[in-house]
Design a protein around this nucleic acid. Structure first.
Lengths: 166, 166
DNA sequence: GCTTATTGCGCAATCA
DNA sequence: CTGATTGCGCAATAAG
């Protein structure tokens, strides 16, 4: 599918002198047609070619517009277009890829986040248990310098019930 | 491949009907803050040189044209185009917005991640301190029932309450 | 001042 | 049938 230089038949009427633009009016307030506001829009209020030149000349429609000589039939031109098209394709491909990568990153980060939160939860729990144990001990020591022989402190804070039920 | 309909000329026309007007329309107003206007792109609505409303054969030399319909000069056509252009613009805008949002999400998640990791670090530290204290204590108890009498170097866990963060 | 990369846009085919 | 998407090419810039 390379691009064999082709004579390009239909090129003749491209625009050369005529911007065949077809029909008149392109919706004057085009935006008015639809909720332009909704669509975003940054419309530039009519920018007229206010060129300082005297009678601008090109303001006359029925005349010929002197467009730069961009010979569309030129071989050079065709070649450049071709290259640009390629570049465009490449660029867009990259862009898309990047978007996908970003999306993926979001997923990864989300997963990571969950993992981290789980870990935090775990650590917090461990910590609270240990703290409780410590407090208990401290209380025991404070209350009585000679706590019961029972080393383990499975008892409510402060004084544990020596004569506990069972 | 994509367009088996025609011998793909290197032109903009998608099917041979020819996009005669090239993209010269003057964006009536719509987006674009681009300085393109500077180029003096003042395209004025104007009638095309000639087009019979009828099927005036297009300009396609030695080929066969199988898509005569689609009167570009039709009012209907123009209207549909305009609408589609709007839709396209809207769609693209959304697409872009979405991409940006996703990117932002990545940033937020990254931040969150850092925060969480910091928290984990803190908790881990606290935990290790407590554990050490605990172990020490346990050893003392196991080795000797009378820790206070022992060498003063290893003073009991004093009191220091690490529960003070954030 | 060239070339490539990006960007906005319109057209048309296709999807929904 | 209508709006939404998508591939593609053009042209104007931006970037190198």
């Amino acid at each position: 599918m390379s691009r064999p230089s082709q004579p390009k038949p239909t090129s003749a009427d491209h625009n050369g002198v005529s911007v065949i633009q077809s029909q008149a009016h392109a919706a004057p307030s085009s935006s008015s047609s639809l909720p332009a506001a909704l669509a975003g829009l940054q419309q530039v209020p009519q920018l007229v070619p206010a060129h300082p030149s005297s009678t601008g000349g090109k303001a006359l429609p029925p005349s010929k517009m002197k467009k730069p000589s961009v010979d569309k039939d030129s071989d050079e031109y065709r070649q450049r277009r071709e290259r640009n098209n390629l570049a465009v394709k490449k660029s867009r491909m990259r862009s898309k890829q990047k978007a996908m990568d970003t999306q993926q990153r979001v997923n990864e980060l989300k997963e990571e986040n969950e993992r981290l939160e789980a870990k935090i939860k775990l650590l917090s729990k461990e910590l609270s248990v240990l703290k409780d144990l410590f407090l208990e001990h401290a209380h025991n020591l404070a209350d009585n310098v000679q706590p019961p022989a029972g080393p383990e402190g499975t008892s409510p804070a402060s004084n544990n019930n020596p004569a506990s039920a069972q």
